[in-house]
């Protein structure tokens, strides 16, 4: 198939190659240098359990249904492997006791649920 002629230049990429050859790598040396997370990063959910009023809004508004709230037992449980880090629970929480903070959930061999229980004084009041 005949190709119509087109304009081209000699070695357009050579400058970039030379620059890269003598400059530092663009990547970080991860295990030796810590990874930097920005302040807003949605990593994982933390709860200040003593401020929680067990309203259950987070449970109902969680898209993957990763949160379980038990009002009677005063517990708040999250399956961190189901959580999709959307931050919806922190937006709907009336007491703003849920927060999404930087740092990924650590990998594990099985899906485990993390349970937080209110202290006794909070439950009786």
């Amino acid at each position: 198939m005949g190709q119509k002629p087109f304009k081209w230049k000699i070695l357009p990429f050579a400058g970039t190659v030379m620059k890269n050859l003598f400059s530092d790598p663009a990547t970080t040396k991860y295990p030796f240098e810590p990874a930097k997370f920005p302040e807003r990063m949605r990593g994982h959910i933390v709860i200040r359990i003593d401020e929680c009023i067990s309203c259950g809004l987070c449970e109902r508004n969680c898209p993957p249904r990763a949160i379980k709230v038990d009002r009677a037992a005063g517990t708040w449980a999250i399956n961190r492997f189901d959580c999709i880090q959307c931050g919806n629970c922190t937006n709907v929480c009336p007491k703003k006791c849920l927060e999404i903070v930087p740092g990924y959930t650590e990998p594990g061999t099985e899906k485990i649920t993390e349970t937080f229980t209110k202290s006794m004084t909070e439950r009786t009041s």
Binding site: P38, E39, R40, M41, R42, I84, Q85, C86, G87, N88, N91, I100
Partner: peptide, 20 residues
Amino acid sequence: DATTGGRVIFSVNCVGGVLK
């Protein structure tokens, strides 16, 4: 990452505007 908190999934849209 700095403005929305995610590199790929941003979760900043909501019905009625944006969240952040």
